[in-house]
Amino acid sequence: MTTTHNPNPALFTYTHRVCYSDTDAAGFVYHGRYLEIFERSRAEWLAQRGLSPTKLVNELNIVMPVRELTMNFYKPGRLDDILYIDQAIEHRGRTQISVKQTAQRKVLGSEDLEIIASAVLHIVCVDTNSLKPKAWPDGLFLAE
């Protein structure tokens, strides 16, 4: 799993190779695994900014729970597929962001990418002590 840099600074791309544990009995990526893969992408996005969930809790006193999500599945992912997970912040409010994530793979015999799954997640910034929404820290979204 590696990270690739996209020329569009508002778009972040994470690369994931589908392994056996990602698949179901039919040999397709199990739908619930996309949530885990998308979570890894968001964790890497934070790491690229020098942040981690531990640092968010211990230094900034925040957590970022998913409040709502919508997923769409277009084609089945398969064992050994290389998935390119694009992540873009579609909307940023004072305490909530909407993040669109897409899982794409190369079309066989081509360099073109096809979308196989996507999700829109609404993530809230929450204070660890009061568990109430809190404004996003300054500088977290500088690259956007």
Rank of each mutant, 00 (worst) to 15 (best):
A135G: 11
H122I: 12
S52V: 00
H5V: 12
A88G: 13
L51F: 09
Y14K: 10
D81P: 05
A103R: 01
P53W: 11
N6V: 12
S130P: 02
A117V: 03
K106H: 15
S130W: 04
W136F: 14
I37P: 06
G139N: 05
V66E: 02
P9D: 02
T13E: 15
V29F: 00
T54L: 08
A43R: 11
L113T: 06
A25W: 01
R94A: 15
I116N: 08
T4G: 02
H91S: 11
H16S: 02
E36M: 02
F141W: 13
R92L: 15
P9R: 05
S98W: 09
H31C: 00
H122V: 13
D127N: 14
D86I: 03
N58Q: 14
S52Y: 00
L69T: 10
K55Y: 08
Y74G: 00
H91V: 09
V99K: 04
T13S: 12
T54E: 07
N58M: 11
R42S: 10
R40G: 07
K100F: 04
Q104N: 15
L108M: 11
V18Y: 05
F73H: 01
V66C: 02
R42F: 08
Q48C: 07
V57C: 04
F73D: 00
N61D: 13
L121K: 14
Y84N: 02
M71R: 02
M64A: 10
P53F: 13
F73L: 00
G77L: 07
F38S: 01
T70Y: 06
Y30P: 02
Y74C: 00
E44L: 00
V126E: 06
E36I: 06
K134L: 11
H122E: 08
P65E: 05
I123D: 04
V66Q: 01
T2D: 14
S98I: 12
N8I: 13
L69Q: 14
S130K: 07
P76V: 05
Y84K: 01
Q48A: 13
R78V: 09
N72Q: 14
T15E: 14
Q48G: 07
I115R: 13
W136D: 08
A47N: 09
T54K: 11
I123Y: 06
M71G: 03
E144C: 12
I89E: 01
S41V: 11
F12P: 02
Y30I: 03
P65V: 02
A88D: 07
I123T: 11
A135L: 09
Y30M: 06
M1P: 04
T4I: 15
V66K: 02
N72H: 13
T2K: 14
D138W: 04
L51T: 07
A26F: 01
K55M: 10
Q87A: 12
I37Q: 07
K75V: 07
N6Q: 11
E44T: 06
R105Q: 12
D24K: 01
V29Q: 00
T128R: 05
P133W: 05
S41M: 10
G27F: 00
I85K: 06
F73A: 01
A135S: 15
I97L: 14
